[in-house]
Simulated assay, not measured.
Amino acid sequence: MAAPGEALTPSGYITHHLTNLSVGEGFWAVHIDSLFFSALTGLLFLWVFRKAAKTATSGVPGKLQCFVEMVVEFVDDNVKETFHGRNPLIAPLALTIFCWILLMNIMDLVPIDFLPYPAEHWLGIPYLKVVPSADVNITMSMALGVFALMIYYSIKVKGLGGFAKELALHPFNHPVMIPFNLLLEIVSLLAKPLSLGMRLFGNMFAGEVVFILIAALMPWWAQWLGSVPWAIFHVLVITIQAFVFMMLTIVYLSQAHEDNH
C-alpha cells in the first residue's frame, strides 16, 4: 500500500512503480530487479522440491511431500496426455516452467509498497519492481528458450532436410506453392514464441497496473476495499497463466517431435 505521507502525485506514483532498476540504456539496459527476483523465485522452487525429495518417505507423507507429489502428478498427467514423443526432458521442463512462472506471478500479490518502500528509504534503491513476469524481457527470454528447443528437436527428429521440407511443402505439397508455404509457415513459427511471451507479460503487467492504480488513487486506509477483491480474482489469473505457458510449451515440443513427411 502507499505510505500515508506519500509526496508523489498519482501519475508520478504510477510511473515510479512501473520503472525498473536498470543498468545501461536502451536495448542494452539490464533490469537488475527482474533478474534478482527471477533468480530468487527459481532458487525457492529448487530449495522446496529438494527439501521434499530429501525428506520423502514411503510411510505417511508430510504436508510438503503431499503438496509436491500433487504438483508432480498434475504436471506428469498433462505431459502424458499432450506429448506424443519420447523425451525424458519434457516432464522436468514442464514442471520447472509451471512452478517457476507460478512463483514469479505470485509476487504480484505482494502489496505494492511492501518491498519498494523500505528498499528506497532504507537501502537507497530508487526503483524496485518485484514481479519478474510483468517484465517483457523475462517472459520473452523464456519464450525464446522454448523456441530454441523447438528448432533443435525439429531438426534432430526430422533432420535438417525434413524440417526444411515441412516449411516449404506444407500445407500445399506443390513446388509452385513453396514461396507461399515458406511465408505462411515461417510467420506461424515465429508467432509461437511471440504469443507465448507476450501473453504472459500482458496479463501480468495488466494485473500489476491495477494494483498500482488502486494504491495511487485510493487513500491508504481504504485500499483493501479494492486490492483484496482484485487479489482474490488475480489468484486465478496467475495460476492460469503459468498453466497456459506450460501447456503451450508441451504442445509446441510435441509438434517438434512429430515426423510427418
Rank of each mutant, 00 (worst) to 15 (best):
W47A: 12
F49E: 13
K51L: 09
A52Y: 02
A52H: 07
T55D: 14
A56I: 09
A56K: 13
S58C: 12
G59S: 14
V60N: 10
P61Q: 02
K63W: 11
Q65A: 13
V68M: 15
V68I: 15
M70G: 15
V72H: 09
E73H: 03
E73M: 03
F74W: 10
F74S: 13
F74P: 05
D76P: 04
D77G: 15
N78C: 11
N78F: 11
V79C: 14
E81D: 12
T82F: 12
F83I: 14
H84C: 02
G85T: 02
N87S: 12
P88V: 00
P88F: 01
L89R: 06
A91I: 00
T96A: 12
I97R: 01
N105G: 15
I106A: 15
M107V: 11
D108G: 15
D108V: 14
L109D: 10
L109T: 11
L109K: 06
P111F: 06
I112R: 09
P116V: 00
P116A: 08
E120L: 06
H121W: 08
W122L: 13
I125G: 13
Y127V: 08
Y127H: 15
K129G: 07
K129W: 04
K129A: 06
K129V: 14
V136C: 13
N137I: 01
N137G: 10
I138M: 03
I138S: 01
I138H: 00
S141D: 02
S141A: 10
G145I: 03
V146H: 03
V146N: 03
F147E: 06
L149Q: 06
M150C: 07
M150Y: 14
Y153D: 03
Y153R: 02
Y153F: 03
S154F: 00
I155Y: 04
K156S: 09
K156T: 03
V157H: 07
V157C: 07
G159H: 03
G161E: 06
G161Y: 02
G162Q: 09
F163Y: 11
F163V: 11
E166S: 13
E166H: 13
L167F: 11
L167H: 14
N173F: 08
V176S: 06
M177I: 00
M177H: 01
M177A: 11
F180K: 05
N181K: 07
